[in-house]
Simulated scan of single mutants.
Amino acid sequence: MSGGVDSSVAAFLMKEKGYECIGATMKLFQNEDVVVCREHTCCSLDDVEDARSVARALEMPYYVFNFSDRFKEEVMEKFVCSYENACTPNPCIDCNRYLKFEKLFQRAKELSYDYVVTGHYAQIEYNEETGRYLLKKSVDLSKDQSYVLYSLTQDQLAHVQFPLGGMHKTEAREIAETQGFINARKHDSQDICFVVNGKYSDFIEQYRGKTYPEGDFVDLEGNVLGRHKGIIRYTIGQRKGLGLALKESMYVVAVDPVKNQVILGRNEDLFSRELIANDVNLISVDHIEGEMRVKAKVRYRHEEQWATVTQPEPDKIRVVFDEPQRAITCGQAVVLYDGDVVVGGATIIETEIAKRYS
């Protein structure tokens, strides 16, 4: 229970079905000063009190589990290392993978509970023909979170429930209002929970206890255009915040951590068709045989596009899009879809842009 409306309604729906439930919130930080009370984040002290209030209203036991060591190791450290190595991470995917559906999953088993239930907008079905559990998009496509859940395994899918997957967000808020939940009108969390002021570069410097050296902005021919303020401040596709007076709009097309350079180009220089990804997790199939036609998305807000995927190695996939896509970025996840079914996903490690310009 994050303290938000979605997990609260999920708890209510499970109670309505007759399940014996306990509420659980994950404590993710040793230093409470990392998190402040803000409307658009989760996991603050106020969120804990909101979750506790709802659990009390539902007559559920409520616990706070301290997973801060694991969170620091698998989410915060990975987040910082990614930016230091010119990658762009998705910490929500890592939190789901290593905290919600690993540590919390393990704790549920230790307490002899059958399911981990969250307020995610996605659906789980069992395919009797293949004997596999399927992860599917939410009915409310505007809230669909299947992208950040692609790492779920078959064992986890068998012991996870998403009660909100078959409804729209407006319905969830109506239920919360009807039940008088304290968080019925609470804003959705949008920011990275451990980035206090919304500036991830400030968090990275505070976390490492250092500043990152300035270097050169260069164009595709290697001409120096100005000075950047440290490579951790720049991501592929970025145009704003460069601090340069240029004759035309230019975008970050690559970051070279070895040379400490940020390479700029035009918008058309950001487009490419191919990527390689590793750390593969497949859901609807055991492996990809030959070429498979899918729709794929390369970041959470990316509109999925037609592509062909192959699996040259057990833990590696190659995705070739029918049409060039903008700003494919190392560190992000590529997630594959067959209609509304998640085929699987992986972490992008090679892109045409990175090879072309670095």
Rank of each mutant, 00 (worst) to 15 (best):
A172W: 12
A172Q: 13
A172M: 14
I175E: 04
I175N: 04
E177V: 12
T178I: 12
T178P: 05
G180Y: 02
F181A: 02
I182P: 05
N183I: 07
N183S: 04
A184Y: 14
R185L: 15
K186C: 10
K186M: 11
D188Q: 14
D188P: 14
I192L: 14
C193E: 15
C193V: 15
F194A: 12
V196E: 15
K199L: 13
K199M: 12
Y200K: 15
Y200H: 14
Y200S: 15
D202N: 05
I204W: 02
I204N: 01
E205S: 10
E205D: 08
Q206Y: 06
Y207A: 00
Y207V: 07
G209E: 06
T211D: 06
T211R: 07
E214I: 05
E214P: 07
D216R: 01
V218R: 01
L220V: 02
E221L: 01
G226D: 02
G226E: 06
G226Y: 03
R227W: 07
I231C: 10
I232Q: 09
I232E: 07
Y234C: 08
Y234K: 09
Y234I: 10
Q238H: 01
Q238A: 00
Q238T: 03
R239Q: 05
R239E: 06
K240C: 08
K240H: 10
K240N: 10
L242M: 03
L242Y: 06
G243F: 00
G243S: 02
G243H: 00
G243E: 04
L244P: 04
L244H: 04
L246K: 02
E248R: 12
E248W: 08
E248V: 11
S249P: 09
M250S: 04
V253W: 08
V253L: 09
A254G: 05
V255K: 04
V255H: 07
D256H: 11
P257C: 05
V258I: 14
Q261A: 15
Q261H: 15
V262R: 13
V262K: 11
I263C: 13
I263S: 11
I263D: 13
L264Y: 13
R266Y: 14
R266G: 14
N267F: 15
N267W: 15
E268M: 12
E268Y: 13
D269R: 07
F271P: 01
S272G: 12
S272H: 07
S272T: 11
R273G: 02
R273D: 02
R273I: 02
L275M: 13
L275T: 03
L275S: 07
L282N: 03
I283A: 09
S284H: 01
V285T: 02
I288L: 05
E291F: 04
R293Q: 10
R293Y: 09
K295V: 11
